[in-house]
Simulated scan of single mutants.
Amino acid sequence: MKATRKTTLYQGIALSFLLGLLSCVEEINLPIRQIEPRLVVEGLITTDPPPYAVKLTFTGQFSSLSQLPEGLTVNGAVVTVSDDQGRTVRLKPDPLTPAYYYLRDSTFRGQPGRSYILRVKLEDGRTFVSKPERIPDVPPIDRLDAAYQRAPAGPPSPDTYTVLLDTQDPPTPGNYYRWSAYAYVPCWAGGVPTTFAGVTLNTTFGAVYGPLTDVGSDALVNGNRISRRPVLTLPVYTLGRRYVEVQQYSLTQAAYQYWTLFEQQRTRTGSLFDPQPASIEGNVRLQSDTTKLALGYFGASAVSRRRLIIPSDTINYGRFIVRFGGLFANVCGDAPGVEPVNWLDGK
Rank of each mutant, 00 (worst) to 15 (best):
T252H: 00
Q264L: 15
R241P: 03
T252S: 11
R241F: 02
S271H: 12
S250F: 01
S279T: 12
G270D: 09
Y243K: 11
V284L: 02
Y249H: 12
P275F: 03
S279P: 03
T252M: 01
R242I: 12
A255H: 02
D274S: 15
R241M: 04
D289C: 07
Y249E: 05
R241C: 04
G240I: 05
V236Y: 00
P275S: 14
L251E: 07
W259D: 05
Y258A: 07
N283C: 08
E263H: 15
L286W: 06
K292Q: 09
R266D: 09
Q276V: 14
V244T: 08
T290M: 01
V236R: 03
Y243N: 09
S271Q: 13
P277W: 12
T290Q: 06
N283T: 10
S279I: 10
Q257Y: 05
V244R: 08
Q287G: 03
V244W: 05
E245K: 14
P235R: 03
E281S: 09
Q287T: 10
L261D: 11
T290P: 00
Q247W: 03
L261R: 14
V244S: 08
D274T: 15
P275N: 11
D289S: 10
Q276R: 15
S250G: 11
Q257G: 08
E281Q: 11
K292P: 00
G282C: 07
E245F: 04
Y237K: 06
V284W: 02
G240N: 02
Q276K: 15
E245W: 04
S271D: 14
A255C: 02
T238R: 14
Y237I: 06
G240C: 03
R285Q: 13
Y258S: 05
E245T: 14
Q247V: 03
V246P: 03
E245D: 05
Y243F: 15
V284R: 04
A254D: 06
S279K: 10
L272N: 13
E281W: 03
R285I: 11
